[in-house]
Amino acid sequence: MIAYPDIDPIAVSLGPISIHWYGIMYLIGFASAYLLGNYRAKKSGGLWTSEMVSDAIFYGALGVILGGRIGYVFFYQFSGLIADPLSLFRIWEGGMSFHGGLIGVIVAMAIFARRYNKHLVDVTDFLAPFVPVGLGAGRLGNFIGGELWGKPTDVSWAMIFPNDPLQLARHPSQLYQFALEGVALFAILWFFSQKTKPRYCVSGMFLLCYGIFRILVEFVRQPDAQIGYLAFDWFTQGQLLSLPMVAAGLALIIAGFKLKTYPKAHTAS
C-alpha cells in the first residue's frame, strides 16, 4: 500500500477567502487550452485567429461550469433537486458532472459557431485535442481533494483516503482517470489531429476514446453513494452516460471518412 500524500486541498487562504486546488486546476485547464489553441491557430491557414480562440475558451468555460453543475444535480442528485430546487445554485457545496459539462460546452460552442458563421463540428474538431488537459487537471484536483476514490482493493498501490469514513485501502481511481482521460487522450487526439482530418473525425475520436476510458475506470471507481449500481452490481451511472458517447463517436468517425468534407474559413456576419 502507498501512503496518500497529505496535501491541503486549500492552496491559498487570504482571510475569509480560500482558494482550493480544484479551482486552480480548472484555471490550468483553461489556460492550457488557450495556449494550445493559439499554437494550432497559427497553423490553421487563417481558419482560426487568436481572437476566436479567446472567445471559444470563454464560451467553453461558461459551458463547463454551468453545464457541469446542472448536469451533476440532474444526473446524480435529481431526487434532492425535487425536494430542494435551490440546491442547484449552491455551487459551494460541490458537485460537477463531466457529461453535464460536455452538454454545456456543446451548447456554448453552438452559440460561438453561429457568431462566427462556422460549422459547429469544425469548432469542436478544433477544440477537442485541448480538452484532455483540463480533464487531467481536474482529476488531479479530485485526487488532492481526496474525493471520487475507487473501490476497496489489495493491490500494492492502494491508498487510504483521509475523507473515507471506512478508512479502507482503495484504488486511486482519480489517478487512473488522469492517466487515461488526461495523458492518453491528449496524446491520441493531438497526434490524430496533426494532419487535417475530415469533419467529424476528431470530435468522434474524442467521444469514442473518452467513453471507453470512462467505462473502464468505472469498474474500479466507487459509485456515487446516493445512486449506487444501476444493475448487475457493477453497472454505474457513469457507464450509462458514456455508452452513447462511444456510439456517437463511432458514428461520427465513419461519417467523417465517408463524407470527406473539410473545414472552411469563416465569413463575416
Rank of each mutant, 00 (worst) to 15 (best):
Tyr4Lys: 07
Ala11Asp: 07
Ala11Pro: 09
Leu14Met: 06
Leu14Ile: 09
Pro16Leu: 12
Ser18Tyr: 04
Ile19Asp: 05
His20Met: 03
Met25Ile: 07
Tyr26Cys: 01
Ser32Asn: 03
Ala33Arg: 05
Leu36Pro: 05
Gly37Cys: 03
Arg40Ile: 04
Ala41Gly: 02
Lys42Ala: 08
Lys43Trp: 09
Gly45His: 06
Gly45Cys: 03
Thr49Trp: 11
Gly60Met: 12
Ala61Gly: 15
Ala61Tyr: 10
Gly67Cys: 06
Gly68Lys: 11
Ile70Leu: 12
Ile70Ala: 15
Tyr72Met: 09
Phe74Arg: 02
Phe74Ile: 14
Phe74Val: 14
Phe74Trp: 14
Phe78Gln: 05
Leu88Val: 11
Arg90Met: 11
Gly94Lys: 11
Gly95Gln: 10
Gly100Leu: 09
Leu102Arg: 04
Gly104Ala: 13
Gly104His: 06
Ile111Leu: 14
Ala113Trp: 13
Arg114Met: 10
Arg115Glu: 15
Tyr116Leu: 02
Val121Glu: 05
Leu127Ala: 10
Ala128Met: 14
Pro129Val: 08
Gly134Tyr: 04
Gly141Ile: 04
Phe143Gln: 05
Glu147Ser: 08
Gly150Asp: 05
Thr153Val: 07
Asp154Asn: 11
Trp157Val: 12
Trp157His: 06
Ala158His: 02
Pro162Ser: 04
Gln167His: 13
His171Asn: 06
Pro172Thr: 08
Ser173Trp: 00
Gln174His: 13
Glu181Ser: 10
Val183Gln: 03
Ile188Cys: 07
Thr196Gly: 14
Val202Pro: 05
Ser203Gln: 13
Phe206Leu: 15
Leu207Ser: 08
Cys209Asn: 15
Phe213Gln: 01
Phe213Tyr: 12
Ile215Gln: 03
Leu216Thr: 13
Glu218Ile: 06
Gln222Lys: 04
Pro223Ile: 02
Gly228Trp: 03
Phe232Asn: 00
Leu241Lys: 01
Pro244Trp: 03
Pro244Phe: 09
Ala247Asp: 06
Ala247Trp: 15
Leu250Pro: 06
Ala251Val: 12
Leu252Tyr: 13
Gly256Trp: 02
Phe257Thr: 02
His266Cys: 02
His266Ile: 10
